[in-house]
C-alpha cells in the first residue's frame, strides 16, 4: 500500500521535474525575491540583525504556500478537466494514494526550494542560519506542519474552481492577499489591528511567526502580538487547519467535472 503511494509520489515528482519551465520558476522564485528585496533593503532592523533575517521567514512561508496551496489548487482542477482523476477513479487505486502522491511531490519541491533559498540568502545576503538544535527542530516541525496544512488546503480548495481555466483566477487573489496580511512583505505588527486579526485565522501568519522564532533573536519575541513567538499556538492553529482541510478533502473533493455528472 505505502509502496503504491511512493510510486505515485515518484510519478508526480517525475512529471514536475520534466516540465522544465515549471522547475525553474518554482524553485528559483523565492531565491529571486530574496535577491530583489535583499538588494533594496540592506539596512539592519536591530544592531547586528539584517533585514534579510526577517524577510527570509516570509519568503520561506510564502514559498511553502505557493508550492503546496496555490500550485495544487490550480493543478488539480486542470487534471480533473483532462480526465486524469476520472481515470484513476476507474482503477482499484485507493483514493488516498492520489493525495499521498501530491503530498510527496509538494514535500520534495518545498524542501528543494527552501534549501536553495537559504543557500542564496546565506551566501549573498548575510543570512545567519539557526545556531541551535532547538531552532533547527522548530524550523523542521513548523515547515512540516505548514506544508501539510497548505497541501490539504490546496486539495480542498481545488473543488472551488469549477474548471482548470478558472482556477488561477480563483486561487491567485487568495494567495496574494494572504501574503500581504500575514507579514510576508511587511512587518506583521505594523499592520492594522483588524488585518492582524483576519490573518490570524489563516495558516500563513502562523507559519511566518514560527519561522521568525527560528531566524530572529529571542528578544524579538516581545515585538510579536501577545508578546512572544507563542509556538504552542502556532502548532495548535496549523494542526487545526490540517484537520479541517482533511475533513473538507474527504467530504467535498470532486473527481469528475460537472459535465461528467
Amino acid at each position: 500500500m505505502t509502496l503504491l503511494a511512493r510510486s505515485q509520489g515518484r510519478l508526480e515528482v517525475k512529471q514536475f521535474l520534466r516540465s522544465r519551465e515549471q522547475v525553474v520558476f518554482t524553485l528559483a522564485f523565492p531565491a529571486i525575491m530574496i535577491v530583489v528585496f535583499g538588494s533594496i533593503f540592506d539596512q539592519e532592523i536591530a544592531p547586528g540583525v539584517g533585514y534579510t533575517q526577517y524577510f527570509v521567514t516570509g519568503m520561506i512561508g510564502t514559498g511553502l504556500m505557493t508550492v503546496a496551496f496555490q500550485a495544487l489548487a490550480i493543478q488539480i482542477p486542470t487534471e480533473r478537466d483532462r480526465g486524469v482523476l476520472k481515470r484513476f477513479l476507474g482503477t482499484p487505486m485507493p483514493k488516498w494514494v492520489y493525495f499521498a502522491g501530491k503530498v510527496l511531490m509538494v514535500a520534495f519541491i518545498a524542501v528543494l526550494e527552501t534549501v536553495i533559498l537559504l543557500g542564496v540568502a546565506t551566501m549573498f545576503f548575510g543570512l545567519d542560519l539557526p545556531d541551535s538544535g532547538t531552532k533547527w527542530l522548530t524550523l523542521l516541525w513548523v515547515a512540516a506542519l505548514g506544508i501539510t496544512a497548505c497541501t490539504l488546503c490546496g486539495i480542498a480548495f481545488s473543488s472551488v474552481a469549477r474548471t482548470g481555466r478558472s482556477a488561477p483566477a480563483v486561487v491567485t487573489p487568495v494567495a496574494l492577499i494572504l501574503q500581504f496580511i500575514s507579514g510576508v512583505f511587511f512587518v506583521f505588527t505594523s499592520l492594522p489591528g483588524w488585518m492582524q486579526n483576519v490573518a490570524a485565522l489563516f495558516p500563513l501568519k502562523w507559519i511566518c511567526q514560527g519561522l521568525r522564532s527560528v531566524f530572529l533573536p529571542a528578544s524579538f519575541g516581545t515585538q510579536e502580538p501577545g508578546g512572544s513567538f507563542n509556538l504552542p499556538t502556532v502548532a495548535l492553529v496549523l494542526g487545526a487547519w490540517c484537520v479541517l482541510a482533511l475533513v473538507l478533502c474527504l467530504t467535498t473533493f470532486k473527481w469528475t467535472t460537472k459535465r461528467d455528472g
Binding site: L4, S7, R18, S19, G83, L85, G90, T91, P92
Partner: peptide, 26 residues
C-alpha cells in the same frame, strides 16, 4: 474501463504510465 477521451500524463512515457497502472492491480 476505456473512457471516451481520457486524460493524458503529458510528461511521462508510455512505458512508465502502463507500468504504474499495472501496480494498481493484484
Amino acid at each position: 474501463i476505456v473512457l471516451q477521451g481520457t486524460g493524458e500524463f503529458d510528461e511521462l512515457t508510455v512505458g512508465e504510465v502502463v507500468r504504474h497502472f499495472a501496480r494498481f492491480y493484484p
